[in-house]
Design a protein around this nucleic acid. Structure first.
Length: 614
RNA sequence: CGGGGCGUAGCGCAGCCUGGUAGCGCACCUGCCUUGGGCGCAGGGGGUCGUAGGUUCAAAUCCUAUCGCCCCGACCA
């Protein structure tokens, strides 16, 4: 824009200066770029990806769980997003939706209340409630509700890549759990379940292509779709100790599942013989409260003991009244309760009961609670007041177990589920442990920590129903479209890649997502021969389509090598003394493999190495 | 939200217990030197000690409050 009164000739001069400046350096020269590498990582960084992304000058923290992405980081993210976009465009259409949402649509879906403090909330100047989007089901469904009229418009797959906000209770591990992040989220709308199957499968395959192209070693696991309904769900996981999720998998077959979903085959346990007349028998167990203590005291295995857990579900009903429902869970003595499974079973969050509550509700001291003499709910319906008795499937069919007697210092023998007491329901509530038998093939299961980079699941009708999306089917009948939703964490792809490939000196990224593919390090820029050879090689590679950065800084070679090792670029070309023999060194960062290549053959070398033709 | 820890220069830290001149390494600037793994020498710049209040002749240091950040737990498409 010209300032008022300026003559056009000035503008021409400004313009030409501007252009000459840009034309002067089409190449990426390290000396002119902002790549703030650090010798030391910030003290509060714990995981490798956090340390290295900061040290390599990819990211800087602005606040807890909020990061600025600098030049290198941004380049890498752009490459990741380009891959995601390219693959998603094969099956769907890209949108760009608002991050700022009115309260109303979240009310309509029921998530305004459900999301609690995880949702960033704010008011506009008129005092109207707004929030920052954490996912876009509401907005997408709102569009579908208003615009989709006929089955002829289905199926639809709509996606976007955008910033999401979550007020995480505890941001951590650098970019692994943050409050603002980029996500590709996609939503499918189909006329029926068979259509959803197709959309789901398309995403499954697309995700595989995306993660393959990003160079990740990932696995796909069966996942829990949560209490929100939805039938099928898969997570795309990258194994790393820095991860926050636990996955169960089998090396013997392809079984793999999220901890919340995983099951195993249990070895049969020998039941105890009935004692006395076979009816529940009171035994004195003075001071023995824990499973271990009681089992030892009575000389039996914890496997023949019932673990009794007392829980409370606090709910607020439609009228805003607080209501608590007691839930008692029986597990085999040596088993662990899986809270996610419990939540999925009872469709409500629970907390451990307080000792005073146990005493008040069951007239039993904590530590001696047992299933007898209490009137349990008959089924899982939620509108009754009786406590629920949930019994883990591992106890189904067992007999003569030992459990609490609801009396201090006493336990009961001869307890048989279904005979002496009637559970509200049997359910799989147990956490799998490593080494148990695979439910498919029987081999030992392993448990690993992993990072979730993608998640696909069949939403069903939850949003389309609650928000009132309807289309007419072939017969002119109004039907609710069925939805799927599909997410990919952009930052997590980079993070997982760093976690996957690093050593004490730094990390290396797959070429497809690295900010640059090749760094050309001129060992000594004061040496004209070295300098011009390096420039020349970088230019040739760039012309051939490679993403190159020229390290032309006036620094000692050691500094450049250290930086090159640190910043994630997979290949380095060292231009040094050997230029007099028309030779440079190519170094593979991952293996440290080094090889002399003739300058005239460098382009060809990389074309072959990266499987690319000019 | 429960438990723990930390806020002193851009980064990493010491000083605090026992109040009295704000320090070290790296980074940064200048000059010389050096050029295949964070080179060397000399000189230099940079800090409201997180913030607010209090105690004291005097506070980075003691007290109170508050904010921020990190870790463990709870939670988590």
């Amino acid at each position: 824009m010209l300032p008022p009164g300026a003559r056009a000739s000035h503008a021409i001069i400004y313009n030409s200066q501007f252009h000459s400046h840009r034309n002067h350096s089409p190449m990426h020269r390290w000396s002119e770029l902002f790549i703030p590498t650090l010798r030391e990582a910030p003290a509060d960084a714990e995981v490798a990806s956090h340390k290295f992304l900061v040290r390599a000058g990819y990211i800087r923290q602005l606040a807890a769980g909020i990061y600025s992405y600098l030049f290198l980081g941004n380049r890498s993210f752009n490459k990741i997003m380009a891959i995601v976009r390219q693959e998603m465009d094969r099956i769907g259409q890209e949108f760009f939706l608002p991050a700022l949402h009115p309260r109303e649509i979240w009310e309509a879906s029921g998530r305004w209340a459900l999301m609690g403090d995880n949702l960033f909330r704010l008011k506009d100047r008129k005092g109207a409630d707004m929030c920052l989007g954490m996912t876009e089901e509401e907005v997408m469904t709102e569009i579908a509700r208003k615009e989709l009229r006929s089955y002829k418009q289905l199926p639809q797959i709509w996606y976007q890549i955008a910033t999401k906000f979550r007020d995480e209770p505890r941001p951590r591990s650098g970019l692994l759990r943050v409050r603002q992040f980029m996500m590709k989220d996609a939503y499918s709308f189909d006329i029926d379940a068979a259509g959803l199957d197709v959309s789901y499968k398309k995403h499954y395959e697309t995700y595989c292509r995306i993660f393959d192209r990003c160079g990740l070693k990932y696995m796909v696991v069966e996942a829990d779709s949560g209490a929100m309904g939805g039938k099928e769900s898969h997570e795309f996981m990258v194994r790393t100790p820095a991860g926050e999720d636990q996955i169960v998998s089998c090396d013997g077959c392809n079984y793999a599942a999220n901890m919340e979903k995983a099951t195993s085959k249990l070895e049969a346990v020998a039941d105890l013989a009935a004692e006395g007349d076979g009816t529940p028998l009171l035994v004195h167990t003075p001071g023995q409260k824990t499973i271990e203590d009681v089992a030892k005291f009575l000389g039996v295995s914890p496997k023949n003991k019932i673990k009794t857990l007392a829980l409370m579900a606090d709910e607020t009903d439609a009228a805003g009244k607080k209501k608590s429902r007691a839930i008692v869970v029986l597990m085999r003595g040596d088993h662990q309760l899986n809270e996610a499974k419990l939540n999925a079973t009872v469709a409500v969050a629970t907390r451990p009961m307080e000792e005073t509550e146990i005493e008040r509700l069951f007239n039993s001291p904590a530590g001696y609670l047992g299933p007898l003499g209490i009137e349990w709910a008959k089924d899982l319906k939620r509108d009754v007041d009786q406590p629920m008795l949930l019994v883990d499937k591992a106890l189904e069919g067992r007999a003569n177990l030992i459990g609490g007697a609801n009396k201090k210092d006493y336990h009961l023998k001869n307890l048989t589920p279904g005979k002496n007491f009637q559970p509200t329901a049997y359910a799989d509530l147990r956490s799998v442990t490593a080494g148990e038998a695979c439910p498919n093939c029987g081999k030992a299961l392993r448990i690993d920590t992993a990072v979730e980079v993608g998640h696909i699941f069949k939403l069903g009708y939850r949003y389309s129903e609650s928000m009132g999306a309807r289309v007419l089917d072939k017969n002119g009948k109004e039907v609710t479209p069925i939805m799927g939703c599909y997410g990919i964490g952009i930052e997590r792809i980079l993070t997982a890649a760093v976690e996957q490939s690093n050593d004490e000196n730094g990390f290396w990224l797959p070429p497809a997502i690295a900010p640059f593919e090749i760094v050309v390090s001129a060992t000594n820029v004061k040496d004209e021969k070295v300098k011009s050879a390096a420039e020349d090689i970088a230019k040739q590679l760039e012309t051939a389509g490679f993403d190159v950065i020229l390290d032309d800084r006036d620094e000692r070679p050691g500094v450049k090598f250290k930086d090159a090792d640190l910043v994630g670029i997979p290949f380095r070309i060292t231009v040094g003394k050997k230029v007099t023999e028309d030779t440079v060194e190519v170094v593979l960062r991952s293996t440290r493999e080094m090889r002399d290549v003739r300058i005239t053959a460098v382009v060809e070398y990389f074309q072959e190495l990266l499987g690319r033709t000019s």
